[in-house]
Amino acid sequence: MERVPILKIGDILLVSIQVDMSDQTAVQLQEDLAERIVATGCHGVIIDITALDIVDSFVGRMLSTIASISKVLDAETVVVGMRPAVAITLVELGLSLNGIRTALNVERGMELIAASRADEWDEADVDEDAETTATP
């Protein structure tokens, strides 16, 4: 069975799927990613599907599951690089990629993750300020 490599870049895990995955390979990737998120403490996962010429219901479900697992582990998932023909087919197949954020390419995916982390920090700051003023 082939295995999809997971690269760590700063605070982000990058997965670029370059093979036509068997179902087993897809399930393995799910488990590998969960372990790497915990081991590295990364807060973002980017899944690059530029090389995938189809996304069927199994792979679609895998992407949704990865997004849910990483959310529970305090990491955000962005799927990038979906081909136009794949997007058209997904919609006709009836697959809604629940809970998945998408971006056109890796660069925008990284920006998206950075921006949403920054938002969270801002909110945390506001909470702290509120507390300090409330208890002088």
């Binding site: 010429d53 189809i54 069927d56 136009p84 023909a85 058209i88 197949l93």
Partner: peptide, 28 residues
């Protein structure tokens, strides 16, 4: 099966979107 269908669809000159739809259906 996906790879066989893809090769045949390309040889039959199906459009890229139609190839993608057929390969996806074949996968299911």
């Amino acid at each position: 099966v996906r790879q066989l269908v893809r090769t045949t669809a390309v040889a039959a000159r199906l459009s890229l979107v139609d190839q993608t739809k057929l390969v996806t259906a074949a996968s299911e």
